[in-house]
Write a protein that binds this DNA or RNA. Structure first.
Length: 666
DNA sequence: GACTAACGTTTTTTT
DNA sequence: AACGTTAGTC
């Protein structure tokens, strides 16, 4: 048999999902029910049944998920077949659509993708130019509203706040003038392309005949429309998800998409994966008892294949300091007793600021740990600078990138000159680069500024000639430009510590190396820039490489599992978060806790504190209302003193939890 | 243009 | 408390 997979290892429901390749399919996959295995087997089965690999499209939410899926399928089928599959995110799918047909929408083929950093810079600039910068409105807030409007299909000029609407329209005009699109535009324009241009729609419907969408509960209305445009009759579309794990409503995810999938694709085959292979019965029972409280779910009950298990502990702490200490100490004891690995432990929290106390206690007890999702690689200033240089090299008319590097390092082209160049470009319908190469503009400014501009543009132009000659790889050209322009020297000089210098140097080398890998594979600089714009550091190295206890937000924990989980800060106002109580989205907080609980395989501890230091102020806390919602059949209610007190008098660490049980029963 | 001082802010996060 | 941003100074 060609496929390296076998139906034998699948349960009944999984087999049904894997075998249903015709028409719309909805797979409701509860936590830990072998979702990824089912989806990858299903795609392997498609290949097995003779569906051309090039016709198969799988859409995920993150690049990481995409590469993981590709890898897993790669382990099951012929290498050449695996390589022909399209496995990507919604956004990179749209890049493909648009690189093909964006000309029909009035953009040039070589459009560039604006990153959040670029967007913020642009809005800031517009607020200065259009006035109102003193209103102390954050560009972020404007961008959030723009994003909301775009994803909800509201025209920008119809945005509620007039000032925001004005900025939004100016922002959009600016992007268009610069032949640039932002992340939301990718979805918006991709959908528009398919919706309004029948040839394109036909082309891609023929190209991708079998479509799979993972984490479907996280799709928004726009992504749903894109999917509808992309998938024509006979609707060979399979969506996979779990409404109970929908935790991104706050950024526009529509649980409705999964709750009423049949409205969009009639008469789907619905498969429920309810057999959980991850957690003990005790943990799962507790999770089920909680999520049952949510209204309007797709009814399903996870069944544990692992029976019994230790009770789930709910532990009361004096303060957040105690909480962090308790966890670190207990993990130390536990690890010694079980000869387990640090990687087996995870601490889950609602907000990032909760991690500080935990990190401190980890360091104090010399416990190695990894923080997931801290500072983004692509947010680092030097990385964005280098990418901007690369973008200018690819297309000097990319205004945003050009303006970013114009005076980094300082080369005598200050803000005033930049404004003059921008104004000139606008008046004459040129790009900023065009203006800076225009004799009329150069004559209109001071000789000093003119010279500075000439030097700079000559340098870039020379590098571009080298790049276009294709005699040397792009990473060499870029590296040379960074050096010649004095950027590297300037960056080095600006570092306060040797560590910082090394760190920044490494980041830059990382970008250059990555570009080198692209060049070696014959991929274009354009492709590199596209992927970089859509990349986030979560996709890369970090997580797997580092070892130690995992400290992670509940949101980021989705899709992961750990033998031992501590879920901290179960206090009213923290989880559920006060803001969600205000906004009436407590259901989503309940799902968040549900996601957290279902991460645990063997042992789960929930903690709450009587007091917590918040913004430098000690405040009293009450236990989360969710605690009372948990069925107590497999719960063990205790406190810091109960456990730490018992520990001192009980040397039998291996029997720690059993002993605990007796201690509490009297 | 680089440095310091004061100020204000603070959910979750991917693309 | 701690971080980023901004205004003011040299």
């Amino acid at each position: 048999m060609a496929g390296g997979f076998s139906f034998d290892s699948l349960n009944h429901a999984q087999r049904e999902a894997v075998g249903s390749l015709e028409g719309p399919v909805l797979i409701l996959a509860g936590a830990g029910t072998g979702k990824t295995r089912t989806v990858t087997c299903r795609i392997a089965n498609m290949l097995h049944r003779g569906i051309a690999p090039g016709s198969i499209l799988a859409v995920t939410f993150t690049n990481k998920a995409a590469s993981e899926m590709r890898e897993r399928i790669g382990g099951m089928v012929r290498k050449s077949a695996a390589e022909e599959l399209t496995v990507c995110t919604f956004h990179s799918l749209c890049v493909r659509l648009l690189r093909h047909g964006i000309g029909r929408l009035g953009y040039k083929q070589n459009f560039s993708i604006c990153t959040p950093g670029d967007q913020a810079g642009l809005v800031k600039q517009l607020m200065v130019r259009k006035g109102g910068a003193e209103e102390k409105i954050k560009p972020q807030a404007v961008l959030a509203e723009i994003s909301r409007a775009k994803n909800a299909g509201i025209p920008l000029e119809a945005m509620k706040d007039d000032y925001f609407a004005m900025l939004a329209v100016a922002y959009q005009n600016e992007l268009r003038a610069q032949n640039a699109v932002d992340f939301d535009d990718l979805l918006l324009l991709g959908t528009e392309l398919l919706r309004d241009h029948a040839e394109e729609r036909a082309f891609f419907r023929q190209r991708y005949t079998h479509v799979t969408v993972d984490e479907f509960q996280d799709t928004n209305a726009l992504q749903m429309e894109l999917l509808q445009q992309l998938v024509g009759p006979p609707h060979h579309v399979c969506v996979v998800g779990d409404d109970d794990q929908s935790i991104y409503g706050w950024r526009g995810a529509e649980v409705e998409n999964i709750l009423s999938f049949e409205r969009f694709f009639p008469d789907p085959k619905v498969v429920r994966l309810e057999e959980n292979y991850r957690s003990t019965h005790a943990i799962l029972h507790t999770a089920n008892s909680l999520i049952r409280r949510n209204a309007g779910r797709r009814e399903k009950t996870l069944r544990a294949t692992l029976k019994g298990g230790e009770p789930v502990r709910v532990v009361e702490m004096g303060c957040d300091e105690d909480e962090a200490t308790f966890i670190a100490e207990e993990m130390s004891i536990d690890k010694k007793a079980s000869s387990g690995r640090w990687e087996d432990f995870a601490v889950l929290f609602r907000t990032n600021q909760q991690s500080r106390k935990l990190e401190e206690s980890m360091r104090r007890l010399k416990i190695p740990y990894r923080m997931v999702g801290a500072q983004s690689f692509y947010d680092r200033r030097e990385v964005r600078d280098v990418l901007a240089y690369a973008q200018v090299l690819d297309d000097p008319e990319a205004d945003i990138a050009l303006l970013r590097i114009l005076n980094s390092p300082p080369r005598g082209i200050g803000q005033a000159t930049a404004v003059l160049a921008t104004d000139f470009s606008r008046e004459h319908g040129l790009s900023v680069w065009g203006a800076m190469r225009h004799p009329g503009f150069l004559d209109s400014i001071s000789a000093r500024a003119g010279n500075a501009i000439r030097n700079f543009t000559d340098q870039v132009a020379a590098a571009k000639v080298r790049l276009d000659s294709q005699l040397e790889p792009a990473n060499h050209v870029l590296s040379m430009l960074l050096d010649e322009s004095g950027y590297l020297e300037w960056l080095r000089r600006g570092c306060k510590t040797p560590e910082e210098r090394d760190q920044r140097g490494e980041s830059i080398q990382g970008v250059l190396d990555e570009l080198g890998r692209y060049a070696a594979k014959g991929r274009t600089l354009r492709k590199f820039l596209d992927d970089s714009a859509l990349a986030s550091d979560r996709d890369d190295d970090d997580l797997e490489k580092k070892n130690g206890v995992t400290l992670i937000t509940l949101h980021a924990s989705k899709g992961l599992e750990f033998p031992v989980v501590y879920l901290v800060g179960l206090e009213e106002g923290v989880l559920p978060h006060s803001r969600s109580v205000d906004e009436g989205t407590k259901d989503e907080e309940r799902r968040l806790l549900y996601v957290g609980i279902t991460r645990a395989q063997k042992r789960l501890t929930l903690t709450w504190c009587r007091s917590r230091v918040k913004w430098g102020q000690k405040v009293g806390c009450t236990p989360s209302s969710f605690i009372a919602e948990l069925d107590d059949e497999h719960l063990l209610i205790s406190s810091y003193d109960d456990i730490m007190g018992a520990e001192v008098s009980d040397d039998e660490l291996g029997d720690f939890f059993g002993g605990m049980d007796d201690f509490l029963k009297d």
